[in-house]
Design a protein around this nucleic acid. Sequence first.
DNA 1: GCGACAG
DNA 2: ATCTTGTCGC
Length: 217
Amino acid sequence: MWPRTYRTGVRRQLELRDRVLLRGSPRRVRLVAGADISYDRGSDVFFAAVVVLDARSLETVEEASATGRSPFPYIPGLLSFREGPLLLRAFRRLRQRPDLCVFDGHGLAHPRRFGIACHLGLLLDLPSFGCGKSRLVGTHEAPRARVGSCTPLYHERRRLGTVLRTRTGVKPVFISPGHRMSHEASVRWALRLCAGYRIPEPTRRAHILANAHRTRR
DNA sequence: GCGACAG
DNA sequence: ATCTTGTCGC
């Protein structure tokens, strides 16, 4: 059962966070999935999309989607309860099981160290990391302007993520481990999955698909 | 009490 | 998340 209140949501995060594994690097990665959600402002009808790419060529090999109402409001720090249920429904429709997943939002870089990338990576039992477009928690120095430049993100004296420049001269993204992978592996994969755009291809394509799905209805 | 605050 | 026109720069 998914929690439906702020209180039970926080409790769930505290119960699950110790199961997250923050070490390692995914092995034999052939399929990488990206997930995202789109919806009209003021509406709770969500359009979820998951796109699976060939890790080597970055070609799309499979797509899945799901539509439904969100059971939770948007509250910073509790995003997974708002988007998680529908994203998992889309994941279940996949014929192939990914070797790695990237989420639109944070993983470890969360006030309770359990962002959506940790939560869904754990439920799917797959290596995962988050790529947020803005900061939720933590402090950091600005990375240099060139692609690949990065600086650590700290919170309460602990490293929670990396501020990474995925495109020269463009606003950096926030990368943090979700499950079964380290900071280093997360950053390495984030860079490897970028193809000239600020956002990694898996989530960039999932965003486009979710949007198309929403628009054509 | 005030400001911050993923998507 | 989405809305929304022009504008700046490569």
